[in-house]
Simulated assay, not measured.
Amino acid sequence: MVASLLALWSAWSGSVWAAVCSQPVYLTFDTGHMGVAPLIAEVLQRQQVRVTFFAAQEKTREGDGTLGQHWSTWWREQARHGHEFASHTYDHAYWRADLPEQRFRIRPSSGSQAGQDLNWSAQDYCDNLRQAAARLQTLTGQAPLSLFRAPGGKTSPALLRAAKACGFEHVGWAEAGFLGDELSSDKFPNDRLLQKALKTIRSGDILMAHLGIWSRQDPWAPAVLEPLIVGLKAKGLCFATLREHPHYQRWITQHPLKLSGLPASPQ
């Protein structure tokens, strides 16, 4: 009952928001070490910005992984604030190459087989997408979007066809929407990333950042996040989730995820 009410509220608020948000950008976050996740959530709430989170079960600075029990309250709070959620593969599984007979070379960066090159069928990949989605549904109490983002954005036409066949549409990001939080803070300091984003981002762009990057010494968030949001608003832009994105709206409506019978808790 609660999940149904949340879904109805999300759809209603999304349609209302779309009516007033005439020059939207779509801010998205992939999971990371989660060290900055509470600060990001505070900024989003203070600025009244709704985003889309793509989640995998990744290693974190504290707790039992991004989709572990330690972070369950945080995920539930993000759902309460109107954010949307989608799969990033459960094992943060990188596509490496296509193989014969509709199989793929996959290298997870999380889970028991992290760092190994694996030979996955299309079904294996779909199961990993669905496992992340099922866990998100358990954590947030709402159905995730029927979208996914491949780790690193690495895909092939064959992989995209396989994912579509099991109900998932892929989401990348705009060139200007690569916000640079993965880059070296020595070569790409925060003020430089901020100025570039404010100069190049346009209405309709999908933006991408992370809930913490292990390798960046000077964290991008929240240092860049709030001035970026304020600056884009000053340019007349507004923020919406991917549920309102014109390219994905029909897909989401026509392909609701069916997640019954799938594992919904960390392995």
Rank of each mutant, 00 (worst) to 15 (best):
Ala143Leu: 06
Asp186Gly: 00
Lys187Thr: 11
Lys59Asp: 10
His210Gly: 07
Cys238Gln: 01
Glu58Lys: 13
Gly111Glu: 03
Ser184Ile: 03
Arg130His: 13
Trp75Ile: 04
Asp98Pro: 05
Leu118Ala: 06
Asp127Leu: 07
Cys238Trp: 13
Tyr94Glu: 00
Val2Pro: 12
His70Ser: 01
Asp186Tyr: 02
Gln123Glu: 14
Tyr125Asp: 07
Gln131Ile: 09
Gly180Asn: 01
Gly63Ser: 13
Arg192Ile: 10
Ala7Asn: 14
Ala197Ser: 09
Pro157Asn: 14
Leu44Asp: 00
Ser184Gln: 01
Ser121Ile: 07
Lys233Thr: 13
Ala41Phe: 06
Val16Pro: 00
Ser72Trp: 07
Arg216Asp: 04
Ala197Phe: 11
Pro246Met: 13
Ala55Phe: 03
His83Cys: 00
Ala18Trp: 12
Pro263Tyr: 04
Phe188Gln: 10
Pro108Gly: 03
Ser265Gly: 01
Glu58Gln: 15
Glu226Asp: 08
Asp91Gln: 02
Leu159His: 04
Ala143Pro: 11
Leu193Asp: 15
Phe168Val: 03
Gly115Glu: 08
Ala240Thr: 11
Gln254Tyr: 10
Lys258Gly: 08
Ala162His: 09
Arg50Val: 03
Ser87Pro: 06
Gln57Val: 08
Ala240Glu: 10
Ile229Leu: 14
Leu8Cys: 02
Gly177Cys: 09
Ser4Asp: 09
Gly261Cys: 12
Gly204Ala: 06
Pro222Trp: 07
Ala162Cys: 09
Val43Ala: 07
Leu118Asn: 10
Ile213Lys: 06
Glu244Leu: 11
Pro189Ser: 01
Phe178Val: 03
Trp251Ser: 12
Leu129Pro: 07
Leu160Arg: 08
Arg61Glu: 08
Ser72Tyr: 00
His170Arg: 10
Leu67Ser: 05
Gly236Thr: 14
Pro189Gln: 08
Gln116Asn: 03
Ser87Met: 08
Gln195Asp: 14
Ser10Glu: 02
Ala11Tyr: 00
His255Ser: 07
Ile252Glu: 03
Cys21Trp: 12
Ala97Asp: 10
Arg216Trp: 05
Gln23Leu: 11
Asp218Thr: 04
Leu193Met: 14
Asp30Leu: 12
Phe178Gln: 01
Gln23Trp: 14
Asp181Ala: 13
Thr73Phe: 04
His88Gly: 00
Gly231Lys: 14
Arg107Val: 00
Ser265Asn: 01
Ala114Gly: 00
Gly115Val: 02
Pro144Tyr: 01
Leu139Ser: 03
Phe85Leu: 11
Ala221Trp: 05
Ala240Ile: 09
Gly65Ile: 02
Gln69Tyr: 01
Arg61Phe: 12
Ala37His: 02
Arg243Cys: 12
Ala240Trp: 12
Val49Pro: 00
Tyr125Ile: 01
Arg103Ile: 03
Gly236Asn: 13
Trp17Ile: 04
His255Thr: 07
Arg105Ile: 02
Glu84Val: 04
Lys164Ala: 15
Glu84His: 12
Ala93Thr: 06
Gly14Arg: 15
Asp98Lys: 15
Thr52Cys: 12
Ser265Cys: 02
Leu193Trp: 08
Thr241Pro: 05
Arg50Asp: 06
Gln78Asn: 06
Ala37Gln: 01
